[in-house]
């Protein structure tokens, strides 16, 4: 991967520090932008397929959303959703799509850590790690 090969040869750069930082910022942003778009496309495709499957099998059922019961526990965690998908439950497939969507911005933050490492910007490596920590804490359901 280009990103890492550059990491080992910083002395070959001829442009000034601020220019190179700017240039890397822009390049990394474009990579991250495409990563986000890809994440959204995959998530939407999975949710769409799950949705078609779900409407075929449960379309005529009448849900009641006026009263809050909460989702059954398999749809509440990453492990649960994955096992629902393997049991071919349509709701599990939709939920996987939603989960992939939630993971997309988290992947963006994780990727930014490498970008700041490459720029040797240790202050922002720490800042980004803090943000990532909050995100992972949330994903675990606030039970670390």
């Amino acid at each position: 991967m280009k990103l890492f090969s550059q990491l080992n040869t910083p002395n070959t750069r001829k442009i000034s520090a601020s220019e190179s930082s700017k240039w890397t910022d822009q390049r990394v942003e474009v990579i991250i932008g495409n990563l986000l778009r890809l994440g959204v496309i995959i998530a939407a495709a999975v949710a769409f397929l799950g949705g078609i499957f779900f409407l075929f099998t449960h379309g005529v059922e009448r849900p009641d959303y006026r009263f809050f019961n909460g989702e059954p526990s398999p749809l509440r965690s990453i492990g649960g959703v994955i096992s629902e998908v393997f049991s071919l439950h349509s709701k599990g497939v939709i939920q996987l799509g939603l989960l992939l969507l939630i993971l997309t911005p988290i992947a963006r933050v994780a990727f930014s850590i490498f970008a700041f490492l490459e720029e040797k910007d240790h202050l922002y490596v720490v800042v980004t790690l803090i943000v990532l920590m909050f995100l992972l804490f949330s994903l675990s359901g606030g039970k670390l």
Partner: peptide
């Protein structure tokens, strides 16, 4: 998106995110 992801995890674990909706 990052801000929303920070609360979406908690909502998912609480069962607030319904696939049908």
């Amino acid at each position: 998106g990052v801000t929303a992801a920070a609360s979406a995890g908690v909502y998912l674990n609480r069962g607030y995110i319904d696939p049908g909706l």
